[in-house]
Computed example of a mutant assay.
Amino acid sequence: MTKDRSKVFLFLDDDLHPIAELETPIVFDLDTKKLTDGEHVLKIISQSPSGKEGIRKINFTVANGPSIRIEGLKNKDVVDGTLSLMINAYDKGNQKSFLINGSETPQTIPFWIWIIIILFVGWAVYYEITSSAIQ
């Protein structure tokens, strides 16, 4: 190690042993495929050539597994009776090609679109009736 460079130690979550010990500046590839899906913390401890230390923690969430979409139930909903749920799970594929099959979740039509359609049809019927009465 040269004495004019800072050194960084990278820790994941509560691990006592660093995953990397590097001299700066450095580009480090963190392979999230080796981590479980969920919340993690990357802790970076820096050490300057003069011996001073700094620390930075970065919270991040890993989502390598298939994405799950659900319609008909939201987090912390209060429900009763029978629920009709639409559930879809799809993988992102590899990073080099786009996966079309199963990557789109069908959704129901929102209620505000139904309101717009009903208002438009009502206006069209009203317009047709009033314009035919004039002739």
Rank of each mutant, 00 (worst) to 15 (best):
G122H: 07
I113A: 12
S97D: 14
V62S: 10
N59G: 11
T105P: 04
T82H: 07
Q47C: 03
S50K: 15
F120A: 13
F111M: 06
V62Y: 03
L83K: 09
T61W: 01
D37E: 02
I118M: 15
K57F: 00
L35C: 03
I68S: 00
T105E: 04
K34E: 13
T61F: 09
N75G: 05
K74T: 09
L83R: 05
T32Y: 02
I68T: 03
E71Q: 10
K33H: 07
S97E: 15
L42P: 09
I116M: 07
A89H: 03
E39H: 14
V78R: 15
G122V: 04
V62F: 02
Y127M: 05
I129T: 12
I68G: 00
L30N: 04
I116E: 06
K43S: 09
E39C: 01
W112P: 04
F120W: 05
E104I: 15
S84M: 05
L35H: 02
I129R: 15
L42C: 05
P110F: 07
P106T: 06
A124F: 13
T61L: 13
L42R: 02
T61R: 11
G51P: 11
I113D: 07
L73T: 00
L35A: 02
I100Y: 03
V121E: 12
T130N: 12
A89Q: 12
T32G: 04
H40T: 04
A124H: 08
Y90E: 01
R69V: 14
S48K: 12
I109V: 10
I70T: 10
